[in-house]
Design a protein around this nucleic acid. Structure first.
Lengths: 170, 170
DNA sequence: ATAAATAGTTAATAGTCTTAACCATTTCCG
DNA sequence: CGGAAATGGTTAAGACTATTAACTATTTAT
């Protein structure tokens, strides 16, 4: 018999909710022929200040593919493919970095900007509806919680791996 | 320019965290030759009381494939494949329902139970480390928050779709 | 008694992502 | 300085995950 644990409940609920949110998102993005990942790239290039990655580090120059790979936690090869679709659709444009010719900077086209702006209200409406009834304080605590967890995952990889080592020999 | 929004920050952080947690999990499960999805099935069959699905509805009889499909939000065909792997590995067993011969009930084998029990401590250690420093009250608020959001997604599909209709014509 | 619904499976296939090898360029440092 | 290592990006091959559609078997509804 596994015992009740509020901590495990939270983790499992986060999984569940993230899945559901992704499904909701997919329905919207499919209407404009995009996947969730492609959509997230647009949000990055729109410099959405709510993206954890953009909160963690400041980016003065336009983003490049390898930074997107970091943020989305996927391979660079994968980003190449995702960005190619966005280029074909005319939502994104690419230009070479003047100082480092290995780098290609990415930015939204006019159409890309227009798409992000057009979809923003309905995204906000869904999000706010889901969180209705909680106070600002509660939401802030919740966000701190999410950010602490993320920071620990990012900074204390070693520590977390040491927990795994309990499993050696299974 | 997209404005700062604590609500959007929360949603994007949930995505991010869920991704990271999945990656951490994958590393552990790979050691025992399982995927996250297969692992989640084991947790269901172990009757883990922290699973949102098992909290939402009581299940007196052993679970069947279509219930797992509901909980994990995937197709029944997919569950067939996932369960086949667990059957081959001898972690799960299947038996026919006595009252309804269409149904196949699933349960853990001795080895399945042993595996779940063996991995539980390290899972708990990671989870508790991530949430260290928050009070019980705060954690309860998060959980209520997560559960409210999930309930709204499940029960108010219509309402949420109406937000999407803002997008018609994009 | 027949139609519709439910449970599960199979086969074909779409979609997403990864790894490995590669080129070009830049940085490091002996 | 000059070669080695690191970084950024791409391509090709394929693994993996999941889906849809068609099918069988059984049960439920009318």
């Amino acid at each position: 018999m596994i015992e009740k644990s509020i901590e495990e409940s939270i983790v499992l609920s986060i999984f569940d909710l993230s899945n559901q949110l992704k499904k909701i998102g997919d329905e919207v993005y499919q209407k404009v022929g995009l996947t969730t990942q492609q959509w997230l790239i647009l949000l990055h290039l729109a410099n959405n200040p709510n993206l954890p990655f953009l909160k963690r580090e400041e980016h003065k120059k336009a983003l490049m593919a390898s930074e997107l790979a970091d943020s989305l936690n996927v391979s660079r090869a994968n980003i190449t493919n995702l960005v190619n679709v966005l280029l074909e659709k005319g939502l994104v444009q690419q230009f070479e970095d003047s100082q480092d010719r290995r780098k290609k900077r990415l930015s939204l086209t006019k159409q890309g900007v227009a798409l992000v702006e057009k979809t923003q209200p309905s995204r906000f409406a869904v999000i706010e509806y889901l969180m209705e009834g909680f106070t600002k304080d509660e939401k802030e605590t919740f966000l701190r919680f999410l950010e602490q967890s993320m920071n620990r995952i990012i900074n204390d990889q070693e520590r977390i791996k040491s927990f795994h080592k309990m499993l050696v020999g299974v």
